[in-house]
Design a protein around this nucleic acid. Structure first.
Lengths: 339, 339
DNA sequence: TAAAGTTACGCAAACGTTTTCGTGTTTATA
DNA sequence: TATAAACACGAAAACGTTTGCGTAACTTTA
């Protein structure tokens, strides 16, 4: 790579001092018009751009936001990143993306690297492994240093920082109620292990809706997927169980799409024999047949809000009135619950 | 944010010079063991980490790779980013992601910002608008400065830089040949406007396969989607045309999934009445019914290769033997072409 | 005991920028 | 004509780090 042109080189070229060049390029009236214009023309010709590292070091500000997501090949997370990037960009920030890969160690090391001075703040959704082991020291350390931090989607309730979450409880509630309304009696929940915070919240909404509508809770209809085993087989077990459900609420799109597949292969009519709803994070739901009713999550909006909270925190390092924003969901009703 | 601890502060604390502290922390034998250990303990206690900006400025190396993609909410691009990140990380690099949003201006400004010294090299897939207007000056300028650059997927042939592409011609060829083999006679191509490089290449493969197999080319079976109009309607036109096709090769998954939808709604049997193949970039193809046969693109691999090329270029600034790597595709045969 | 070597540290430059303050020269004012 | 103001520029510090070199003080060697 060719060495880039610097103030020093320009200064040498004109036989003036570095500060003269700097001022000239900033159109300072301290510099005579003659010198000013000649320096500007020269700099322009050589396409001078101030070295960003030097500026960042001097200003103690990078204008970079770090984002750590569990994975990136995931519609929801990429939507969030998109939202973060759009908002950040508009505010003059750039985005550095790291992927924890659902690993605790990777998350710790990502945080460690990014807080070496390369970013002004961090937006994080917690790795599954971290949620499982409940080791949050790396976050507590950030908080202790007042490091600008926004947690999204998979958060830690007790942590003193800004958060933005989907209304998981409400979304599941609405979905469950919709199933009840269309006449379903035995509504199964297809969820994750309990340590996944969003899974737990969606279960809460599901249970609340049942109770509110006088439906008795049947624990045998709550199936927690084990990620280490085959998804399809596990769903088959649920659908073929002795008290087979007449509706399934799945906590994500993949679960829902697979449930649909299993049901169809068992010869079940959808939604008549069994209705299905998923939480959306992609385009799958639109293209299954029948298309899946789903709880839409507005990831883009979430990203924007997270970025907004973070940038506010960075720029107005005000009192510690931490916000918890809740992005509400809406139910997109499609043919899998409509006949 | 609490001010971070620096060498200077440690030095003051111990009444020694900054260089002594720096050397002590690097376990230099120049420093007496006593002082060394005390400084290390102190630094450890206050969780000292060298300021990355200062290091980057001094070493004239950021160990950051910039990636510019047209969009991020896109399975293929997020796979590429994933691949880049994984490889880069393993080599000690971080990744800064920018989104051009298919806009020429955004692409130019992204490049301008990132080349201010914040990244050591750039991995880019060109914005649609740039491909359309054919204005490549911003890339030529990078090349002129020997700035490490790798183009992927949507590339510019004439540019002197490393490139990595999907074997679009081969993929389309294989897919077309497969359709011919299963007996299709009137194979339509559902593609983009010609200025989209990958669209053009896939068309080339399609044409080649037809010629090689003695099928006469029917221009009326080549339909170029206009992104500004409704996708579904345009596909309807194709399928309901007077000489309706008995097979469709779509250059992406969305086109394919929509074609499937239209066909089913017209009461066509798949694959008997009409067979469909798409280029994959997501999970949709697996969950449609029937599932879609598709040309798998290996985005992750592509990202890894791009990162490898770039890092090689950055680290061994050798002779300019620019590489063009071709990632081969494979045909995942599903029920949409199999009966 | 003088010369040589070793130990343990400090100085200062370098990376590239901005900005405050100082200063010499010129111009305007009384 | 002396004094004040305006002009045009430079020096230097600051951001935080690394590292080659210089140098006291002390220790070893002859």
């Amino acid at each position: 790579m060719k060495p880039r042109i610097t103030l020093k080189k320009i200064a040498k070229e004109f036989g003036v001092s570095i500060s003269t060049v700097s001022k000239a390029l900033k159109d300072s009236h301290e510099i005579s018009e003659d010198v000013r214009e000649r320096i500007k023309a020269f700099a322009d010709f050589y396409n001078y751009k101030p070295n960003s590292l030097a500026l960042q070091l001097r200003n103690q500000k990078t204008s970079v936001i770090g984002v750590i997501v569990p994975e990136i090949v995931h519609h929801f997370f990429s939507e969030v990143i998109d939202g973060v990037e759009k908002y950040a960009n508009q505010k003059g920030y750039n985005v550095m993306v790291c992927i924890s890969n659902e690993s605790y160690n990777k998350e710790v090391s990502n945080i460690s690297v990014l807080t070496n001075g390369s970013v002004d703040g961090l937006i994080i959704s917690i790795a599954r492994e971290t949620q499982e082991t409940q080791n949050f020291k790396h976050f507590e350390d950030l908080i202790k240093d007042d490091f600008p931090l926004v947690l999204f989607d998979r958060i830690i309730e007790d942590l003193q920082c800004d958060k933005v979450i989907i209304d998981d409880v409400g979304g599941a509630y609405k979905a469950t109620e919709h199933l009840i309304e269309i006449g379903c009696k035995k509504i199964a929940l297809l969820t994750t292990q309990d340590y996944v915070s969003v899974g737990a919240l969606r279960k809460e909404g599901y249970l609340k809706a049942l109770v509110a509508n006088g439906v008795t809770i049947d624990e045998s209809l709550i199936y927690k997927i084990d990620d280490s085993k085959n998804l399809y087989d596990q769903i088959e077990l649920l659908i073929n169980a002795s008290n087979s459900p007449d509706a399934i609420l799945a906590v994500n799109e993949i679960y829902a799409a697979n449930a649909l597949k299993v049901a169809k292969e068992r010869g079940l009519e959808i939604p008549n024999d069994i209705a299905i709803i998923g939480f959306t994070s992609g385009l799958i739901s639109e293209f299954t047949s029948p298309p899946l009713t789903s709880v839409v999550q507005h990831g883009f909006l979430m990203g924007q809000h997270a970025a907004e909270l973070l940038i506010n925190r960075i720029e107005h390092t005000g009192p510690e009135d931490f916000q918890k924003e809740v992005i509400s969901t809406n139910l997109k009703i499609r043919k899998s619950t409509l006949n």
